[in-house]
């Protein structure tokens, strides 16, 4: 394997049914290069929650993924409405998701706490009216 693998995905904001396809691809790529299933699951869950968030709240965006020998770095970048109060958004149970999304099994305010739980480094930069960048790093054990 070369030094790193660089992947870029467009996350379609208009299609809830397709949300998660980028995470699925990253998952199979990690499996192919022999990363442990426990680490793969952490990556898959964190990235999938992030993708779902981009579709629910931001009209989609871009997922930029760099896989190194010892870790994976994921940037989820959107041009949505931004997060006013990041600390509040990180509270389990706090959500601005509409009822139709809740009816689909998401939007209970568990996404961001889940993402933090499964990652080794987690950071959100957000500007209201401009968009949000979520940075995640997961180290391979």
């Amino acid at each position: 394997m070369s030094e790193s693998i660089h992947l870029v995905f467009n996350v379609d904001g208009n299609n809830f049914a397709s949300a998660g396809t980028a995470s699925e691809e990253v998952k199979s790529k990690l499996k192919m290069i022999g990363i442990s299933s426990a680490d793969i699951r952490r990556v898959a869950i964190a990235m999938y929650e992030g993708e779902i968030n981009m579709v629910i709240h931001a009209g989609g965006g871009e997922a930029i993924v760099d896989i190194f020998l010892d870790r994976i770095e994921i940037l989820l970048a959107d041009h949505g409405k931004g997060i006013e109060d990041i600390e509040q958004a990180m509270q389990p149970g706090w959500s601005t998701a509409p009822d139709d999304i809740r009816a689909l099994g998401f939007g209970a305010g568990m996404g961001l706490p889940n993402m933090k739980k499964y990652t080794d480094e987690f950071r959100i930069d957000s500007t209201v009216g401009v968009g949000t960048n979520v940075y995640m790093t997961i180290k391979f054990n």
């Binding site: 699925e24 898959a44 779902i52």
Partner: peptide
């Protein structure tokens, strides 16, 4: 086990193996 029927039940199943 779920009562939902949308493709995200499959994606969720994929993510948790």
């Amino acid at each position: 086990i779920t009562g939902l029927v949308n493709p995200q039940i499959v994606r969720t199943a994929i993510m948790v193996d």
